[in-house]
Amino acid sequence: MLSRIADSLFWLARYIGRAEDTARILDVTFHTLLEQAPQPHGVRWEPILSMAGEETLFRQLYTEPAAHNVFEFLAFNPDNPSSIMQCITKARENARTIRDRISREMWEDLNSLYLTLGRFDPQEETAAGPHRFCGRVIFGSHRFHGVSDATLPHDEGWDFLRVGWALERAEMTARLVDVQYRNLLALTSAGGTPDNHQWMAVLKSVGAYEAYHRQYHAPIDPARVAEMLILNPQHPRSIRFCVTEMQTSLRAISNTAPGSYANEAERLTGKVLERLRYSRIDEILDDGLHPYLTGLIHQFNTIGEVIARTYFYYAGVA
């Protein structure tokens, strides 16, 4: 497989994942804000912007973080490289450069998602609220996964897609927990009382609300939410689950047996996974959740770079 194709598949998956994650967070936050009684220390928009890593850009483009501005910025704004439409556009561009290598169904599905989302009128949607638009994005992402699974040969290309999805999700979950946890704790120390709604919002934004209740049969508790999202071995959006996926796919690409590693990307992934497997949430909280998650995000970035060096870029023969 051409390095460039692997590169495109990897980024195709990441951009779709990024669009879906942004849509989820946007949608849930918006509706939580609707349900929340007006209070000085309630859920706010700023953390979401910092999670997307685009707080500075937002301040350059808008005067205040009002709901409609945030929605417009995160969903449509062409000047925001992480806006949902930009992610979908880039995903489609990546797919277009490799459309001879993906299935016709994958291309047509993604192209039709792109065309459908392009028909949404930003002004009309901003007025109507994000649910319809975000719902379409989330559904589109799921459908694309399904179409890919069902129509793409499960070869190296498939594994690069899976690595892209898993890495993007792992990183996004880490950012989400980090930002929300800090936000809600800050709220508590400032005298506010984060109610269940806000923790529910965090769980809902990663689609883990129902799973949480099945798992714990208990009221929502910040430590358990963190445990669910970081250490749970089964939930498809937990960091541990995603890193396991990454390891499986990376090994499939290099045809490496379990228990060993063929390259730096696999070694680093294995190292992260071992820590996740043998950590307990109370230890993590005692040592500080923020440094722990920042460390993880840093390692995910490194893994992304190492994957690129190993498989995507050719820098002269030895």
């Binding site: 051409l2 390095s3 460039r4 459309r99 001879d100 290598r101 190296e156 995507f312």
Partner: peptide, 30 residues
């Protein structure tokens, strides 16, 4: 891309190819 797919051959861009001496290679993940 249509023809490449129909013929089952690799669709490459210039940056995917490299000449070493007088032999052309493509850059693959392996």
């Amino acid at each position: 891309s249509f023809l490449a797919q129909q013929m089952g051959i690799e669709l490459v861009e210039g940056r995917d190819l490299i000449v070493d001496g007088v032999v052309v290679y493509m850059k693959t993940i392996y």
